[in-house]
Design a binder for these strands. Structure first.
Length: 1076
RNA sequence: GGGCCUGUAGCUCAGUUGGUUAGAGCACAGUCCUGAUAAGACUGGGGUCACUGGUUCGAGUCCAGUCAGGCCCA
């Protein structure tokens, strides 16, 4: 294709789109023109829109689920910028915590805490610090490629001294309010990592585990020969047994059973569980009683390694006992179970701590000393067996918590640790949550709301190395404790300046371990030595402190903090309900009695194409780059926005993204390239009107197609805008797909001739104006979701002809709907026209009349008077599209039309309720023709049913017309299209002429002519076709841009072809006459 | 065991306050259309709307229960 560039307004656009190179060119433009920076700078002074980036950890490669989150994070700031808001999108990195330590331990080949201390905490933490940015380049590259605009140059980093100091300030605040306390509780504890885990960490690691399931006899002291029967899946807790619990109101039985070795025994257990414990075994019930009768019964201790310091080994009563599993008699080891500990408190039972923090038995437990408790399970079982205390031992599979990073089974273990008293604020947590806009809404009262309702104190302490140290110092002698809230305060206490920078020659203190542990002072109470407690804090507290700590508030940036709190919008995946969503909410509630965010989109997880979770071990991870390389970022983003509502889990594969390109991107691209092709041919350009873009002349009031498209366009603007305002992502994207489809397959399909015609009349101008308006409006509506394509359209359609326009579509103003252009009835009518045309095509298919053959007449039947008007008003559109000479409405009096009636359930059912079936029956029994004629004249129909008389109105019954003879018919409900299929010689000749034109156009194409090139045409053909060509010569020469038509053999050098159709033969050839 | 969500065509998803014959795209087959189109139009095959029961004149939609999957909590 040859284009004379010097006269063209718009950059020529190939009809073939190379997505990747287009996007890469846009990326280069954004970079060189610093567009992202400008989107922030140019909105300085505008209202603030506050977005918080949930900080990821860059010690692993980003995956497609990160693309999901980043795509959703990106679109609202882009939208708000176009609406004039100032949005500073500060990035952040989460850098502390066990995952980081685990990675480094792996590198070093460590398996326990001892090795870390031997290696040196300073060196270990140095490696942690390096490792958190191991994959930062991957993150930056991906973030850049998918066009997630976030400021990574000025990102906050949770390990910096400034950040930690702000976190300390928060903790000191809590300390002063008495919200930070040391408690002793049974906590899930990872013996390998040597630290308790928070509830949200435990949640990450449930797996199926197979454990021993043992039934153990506890011989009663006062009743020789009888034993309590208990059940446990953790035999290693048995040396810690101090009591047995029974439910006061459950029915228990004493049974007698024969022993294999001879003799018999008596056992006590819950009656309901008898069948489960002794399936198929005959047992004799000798007694039956309520659990409360067991109260205080003493039994012989199983083990005596650790003498209890309080009365023990008797039955206590508790409501927590269930008859789901086991025996209804629950073994109590207060050191290893939360309920056990609670019972120990209630009944003043001793706590036998038989296990060391590393999960090994203490030396006192002589047979298994130093042994990992789970390894000791079989030996304990053996021991019980040998002593005749074991009834039976089986295997039991249940879900059990494992350490989420190292997969060690967790132990429930009584430990001292630090808590934040969040439960005291439960009501405020719940009340403030009510003011947050959750997408999807059910999270608010469901998952997140329930979680808040059941709030328990936040277990904050972590006995680890790489993290924010808990700023509490304790006197070695008198246990006096002080919390420190800043570097200055620490300097004062320590008596030396520790507040300077910690790098270079600065005297300042690095706030991590081990350096911070080396700061001491004398106890003000007893002049003992103040030493920092060993704990770090939960790294979720770091990220939850981000609204404060990213600004190093309150030590500086007070104005920044005030301006940027709370957030308008955050977005993360659903696993963050117990993570960042909670930590942000809890901290800002306790600190400021405020929400931390007003709107939140909570994303579902991505699964693979089979609906399985993507995981490294399954090897089913879709690499984002594989998709990006083939289909580009826009298509990936668009797929994520449109495929599923954000809260749903979604199946994902690269092929589904490819569909977006074929279905949506290419359709829009082709409209765009069509526009540019013809606008350049006609040298059409929009005009600038006082800095505002308008289009040439008044927007047509002549063409109903133009009025319709603009009505739909402005409707779309309203729809998309409302969706953005309510954080409805599918609502902001899916309607654009529908519009583009209509734009391409109806507006443009029906408007093509308006662009082809040679004369430049007002109708042609109006067509250009309308299409141009639609394209530049679409570019803006698409900008937040498809930033690349939007930019490409905008640069070529707007910037190339108006250098004074905003430099980027992302700096442009969001379009506002022109309400005056919205005409509901027009949208309605056109939808009807499309439906009638569809029926017309269907009828043609049935009649086996191809579209190129003109037909004499199409007649339609529709539902009501308004619709009859619509068909009349758009008759020319319909006749063009269906290639018929005449369009009219079917008329009962002149056409051979029959009627059928269909009572409408919605109308009649709502009005008459349970009388509806009888009424329907009665109407159907009546003569359809007379029912129709009554109702069509606007009179009510009198119906007798079930002994009553009803007046049925026209809108309560649907009247179906059917055309009898001489028509090819297609219908749908009340709608019907009927085609006259009879052909006259003139119609046949016209059909031949169209066939002929089609052949010439193909030949033009294969001769590689430009669309506007004029040709000389040579034809040798059979008489029938000759006659048809002669009769339609004007039509043919106009259509094919023929300046000279000769009935002669093509000369040498002509592009020629032979063909035959409809029993006619021909040879045609063409020569280029001249270029347009 | 408890909470939340999901279950509609081979695949990805729509389906309004309960109301006519449950739709779209992809994929498959045929026909047509095409001087923007890698596209489009029409037709066809493909559905016990997870299952069972209930409410109702009427249930994909409301209620109860069951099953399956996901996430979360024990």
């Amino acid at each position: 294709m040859t284009i004379r560039l010097e006269t063209k307004m718009f950059k020529p656009v190939s009809s073939k789109l190379d997505v990747t190179s287009m996007e890469e060119a846009v990326l280069r433009f954004w970079k060189s023109a610093e567009i992202f920076k400008k989107t922030v700078e140019q909105r300085e002074g505008g209202p603030e829109y506050i977005f918080y980036e949930g900080p990821p950890t860059a010690n692993g490669k980003p995956g497609v689920h990160h693309v999901l989150a980043r795509a959703f994070k990106d679109m609202f700031p882009r939208y708000k910028i176009m609406r004039g808001y100032h949005v500073s999108r500060r990035g952040g990195w989460d850098t502390h915590g066990l995952p980081v330590e685990i990675e480094v331990e792996k590198q070093l080949g460590f398996t326990g805490k001892g090795q870390i201390e031997a290696y040196g905490i300073d060196k270990f933490n140095e490696l942690c610090k390096k490792s958190v940015f191991a994959y930062i380049q991957d993150w930056e590259k991906l973030t850049d490629r998918i066009a997630f605009w976030v400021d990574l140059e000025d990102a906050y980093v949770t390990y910096t001294n400034d950040y930690i100091e702000s976190v300390w300030w928060i903790l000191k605040n809590f300390w002063d309010k008495g919200l930070l306390y040391q408690g002793y509780k049974v906590v899930p504890y990872c013996p390998r990592c040597g630290t308790p885990l928070s509830d949200h960490e435990v949640a990450l690691g449930y797996e199926d585990a197979t454990d021993p399931s043992v039934f153990v006899r506890l011989p009663l002291v006062e009743t020789p020969g009888a034993s309590l029967l208990i059940w446990t899946t953790t035999p290693w807790t048995l040396p810690g047994n101090v009591a047995v619990a029974a439910h006061p109101d459950v029915e228990y039985v004493t049974i007698e059973r024969n022993l294999a070795e001879g003799g018999s025994e008596r056992l006590i257990l819950a009656k309901l569980l008898l069948e489960k414990v002794f399936p198929g075994e005959e047992v004799k019930i000798v007694d039956s009683f309520k659990g409360k009768k067991l109260k205080g019964k003493r039994y012989q201790p199983l083990f005596t390694f650790m003498p209890p310091d309080k009365p023990a080994h008797y039955v206590v009563l508790g409501d927590f006992v269930t008859t789901e599993d086991g025996t209804g008699l629950v073994h109590m080891a207060p050191a290893f179970g939360a309920e056990d500990m609670a019972a120990a408190m209630e009944f003043n039972l001793p706590v036998l701590m038989t296990v060391a923090p590393d999960g090994a038995f203490l030396p006192e437990v002589t047979p298994w000393r130093g042994m990992w408790v789970k390894d000791a399970d079989p030996l304990i079982i053996q021991d019980l067996q040998a002593r005749g205390l074991l009834l039976k031992s089986e295997l039991y599979t249940h879900t059990y918590p494992f350490c989420w990073r190292c997969h060690t089974p967790l132990l429930y273990y009584a430990r001292g640790t630090w808590y934040i008293r969040t439960s005291q604020f439960k009501d405020r947590l719940v009340a403030l949550n009510q003011t947050i806009n959750w997408v999807p809404e059910h999270i608010k009262t469901g998952r997140f709301g329930n979680w808040l309702e059941n709030n328990v104190d936040w277990a904050l302490g972590r006995e680890r190395y790489w993290g924010t140290p808990l700023p509490v110092w304790e006197c070695a002698d008198c246990k006096h404790q002080e919390a420190v809230g800043s570097r200055c305060e620490l300097s004062e206490k320590a008596g030396r300046d520790l507040s300077g920078p910690s790098t270079g020659s600065g005297q300042g203190l690095e706030l991590h371990r081990p350096y911070v542990d080396n700061v001491h002072w004398n106890c003000p109470k007893c002049s003992g030595r103040m030493q920092r407690v060993p704990e770090l804090i939960d790294c979720w507290f770091d990220s939850g402190s981000m609204p404060v700590a990213q600004w190093h508030y309150p030590f500086e940036n007070e104005d920044k903090f005030n301006e940027q709190f709370p957030a308008d919008y955050i977005c993360e995946a659903v696993d963050q309900t117990r993570g960042w969503f909670y930590s942000l909410h809890a901290i800002s509630t306790l600190l400021f009695d405020s929400v931390a965010y007003r709107n939140v989109i909570c994303l579902g997880h991505i699964q693979d194409s089979e609906g399985r979770k993507m995981s490294k071990s399954l090897g089913n991870i879709v690499e984002p780059w594989d998709v990006l390389r083939v289909h580009g970022a826009d298509a990936l983003r668009w797929y994520l926005y449109t495929a599923t509502p954000p809260g749903n889990e979604r199946r994902f594969s690269g092929d589904l993204v490819g569909e977006v390109v074929r279905n949506f991107t290419l359709t829009l691209w082709n409209v765009y390239s069509f526009f540019v092709l013809y606008a350049n041919l006609d040298e059409w350009k929009p005009t600038v009107d006082g800095g505002q873009w308008t289009v040439n002349g008044p927007l047509s009031t002549v063409s109903s197609l133009d009025r319709w498209l603009l009505s739909e366009l402005n409707t779309l603007v309203n729809e998309v805008t409302l969706a953005y305002e309510t954080y409805d992502v599918p609502g902001a994207t899916r309607p654009i797909e529908v519009f583009v489809e209509h734009l391409s397959t109806w507006y443009l399909r029906r408007s093509r001739r308006r662009f082809w015609k040679s004369e430049s009349d007002t109708d042609k101008q109006a067509a250009y104006s309308t299409l141009y308006t639609a394209l530049i409006t679409l570019a803006k509506l698409l900008a937040p979701a498809m930033p690349f394509l939007a930019e490409e359209l905008y640069q070529n359609l707007v910037r190339s002809v108006d250098p004074s326009a905003p430099e980027s579509v992302h700096l442009a103003e969001w379009p506002l709907a022109d309400e005056a252009r919205i005409a509901e009835s027009l949208n309605h009518d056109m939808a009807l026209v499309m439906k009638m045309v569809s029926l017309g095509h269907s009828a043609r298919q049935k009649a086996n009349r191809k579209v190129r053959q003109p037909l004499a007449e199409a007649a339609f039947s529709v539902g009501n008077a308004d619709e009859r008007h619509a068909v009349e008003a758009y008759a020319n559109l319909i006749s063009d599209e269906l290639n018929v000479k005449k369009v009219r409405l079917l008329n009962a009096s002149t056409d051979a039309v029959t009627y059928a009636v269909k009572p409408l359930p919605k109308q009649l059912g709502q009005k008459y309720g349970n009388k509806f079936p009888a009424i329907r029956e009665a109407i159907l029994k009546m003569d359809a023709e007379s029912v129709a004629s009554t109702l069509l004249t606007g009179q009510p129909l009198t119906v007798k049913a079930a002994g009553e008389t009803f007046d049925i109105l026209g809108e309560e019954v649907e009247i179906h017309a059917d055309a009898k003879a001489g028509f090819a018919v297609a219908n749908d409900g009340a709608y019907l299209a009927a085609l006259v299929t009879e052909l006259t010689p003139e119609l046949i000749e016209e059909g031949l002429a169209r066939e002929f034109v089609r052949r010439v156009q193909d030949l033009r194409k294969s001769a590689d002519l430009d669309v506007a090139d004029r040709i000389k045409l040579f034809v040798v053909t059979t008489p029938g076709l000759t006659k048809a060509i002669t009769a339609n010569q004007d039509y043919i020469t106009t259509e094919t841009l023929t300046v000279e038509l000769a009935f002669a053999a093509p000369p040498a050098g002509a592009v020629a072809v032979e063909d035959e159709f409809e029993a006619e033969k021909m040879k045609i050839g063409l020569l280029k006459a001249y270029s347009a």
